[in-house]
Amino acid sequence: MERGAVPLWNIANILTLVRLALVPVFAVLLLHADGRESWWRLAAAAVFMIASFTDRLDGQLARERGLITDFGKIADPIADKALIGAALVGLSLLGELGWWVTIVIAAREIGVTLLRFWVIRYGVIPASRGGKAKTMAQIAAIVAFLLPLPPGAAVVRWVLMGAALVLTVVTGADYVVRALRLRAGAR
């Protein structure tokens, strides 16, 4: 290994792989007994929260310790999208979240990923504060849907999901504008 090279096997990348490995565990817990047993839902929520925390932690460690790798740049967003996607699809399969919500969020995520590839030769579109807020809002909303809360909590769930949807659409539009500017500026 040359001097200054970041090893592929570092704590940030290992946390990313742990998050990716937790996705099927989370999905099994969520879908067990059609999602109707409280202890299984609590376990699914716990795994989801742990996996979500690894996202914040791996990024922080990578920046603080200089552990940023090309693998991490690719694997981290894949793990994030897999976790959020599994939660949304699972909740939609259980009939607790409309498929339209899952489709809007998935379309935004796929669209932003394609935009990044479209402009990659001109530069990188870094994650914005809005994008990070969008992720936090999605996580909060999903946790509210995962937890076996009383029926009166439905309004809280939908307020959180509404905020997540607004941030999802607004930041998606922001990425489109930023991609177009990056591409136009490079010409």
Rank of each mutant, 00 (worst) to 15 (best):
I11V: 15
V28N: 06
E109H: 01
L182Q: 11
L17D: 02
A186N: 08
V155S: 10
R129P: 10
T168D: 06
I110G: 06
G111Q: 01
L97F: 02
N10C: 02
S92H: 00
V104E: 05
D55S: 11
L57R: 04
R181S: 05
A137T: 14
R183Q: 07
L15V: 15
A86M: 06
F53N: 11
T113D: 10
I50R: 01
E37K: 00
A153R: 03
A186Y: 02
T113V: 12
G85I: 05
D174C: 00
A106R: 02
L88M: 14
R56F: 15
E2Q: 10
V166L: 11
G130E: 01
E109P: 12
T16Q: 08
A44Y: 05
Q138L: 15
L146S: 08
L30C: 13
A79F: 02
V155W: 00
A106D: 08
G90F: 02
A21C: 14
L8K: 12
W99Q: 05
T69E: 09
L149E: 01
A184D: 15
V6E: 07
M49V: 14
I68E: 12
D55F: 03
A62H: 06
V23N: 14
V170L: 14
A106K: 02
V104M: 07
R183I: 10
W99C: 09
V159E: 13
P7E: 10
L88Q: 03
I74F: 12
A173K: 02
R65E: 13
D76W: 06
F26Y: 14
A163M: 03
V18K: 03
R41W: 08
L182W: 00
K132W: 08
L91H: 09
K132M: 09
S38I: 01
F145S: 10
A179E: 01
G85S: 07
R121A: 14
T54I: 02
I84R: 06
P148I: 05
I74G: 05
A107M: 11
V169E: 10
I105L: 04
W100L: 09
V124Y: 00
R183A: 12
F71C: 11
I84E: 04
L114T: 00
K81W: 03
T171A: 00
M136N: 13
V28Y: 06
L30D: 13
V119K: 04
F145G: 11
G152R: 04
A153P: 09
R65K: 08
L146D: 10
V119L: 07
R181K: 14
L97D: 09
F145H: 14
A140H: 04
L20S: 15
A173N: 02
G98L: 05
G4C: 15
A87S: 06
R108S: 06
W118R: 13
L42P: 03
V177S: 11
A62L: 13
A62M: 10
Y122N: 13
F26I: 13
L17S: 08
V177N: 11
L182K: 08
L146V: 04
T16L: 07
V169C: 12
V47R: 08
I74E: 14
K81E: 13
K132S: 12
N13L: 10
R157F: 13
P7V: 12
T135F: 04
G4D: 08
I103A: 15
R41S: 09
V112A: 03
R36C: 00
M161R: 01
T102A: 15
A140N: 02
P7G: 12
G90Y: 04
G111N: 03
A5L: 09
A154V: 09
G172T: 10
W39N: 13
G98N: 07
A75H: 09
P77Q: 04
G131E: 03
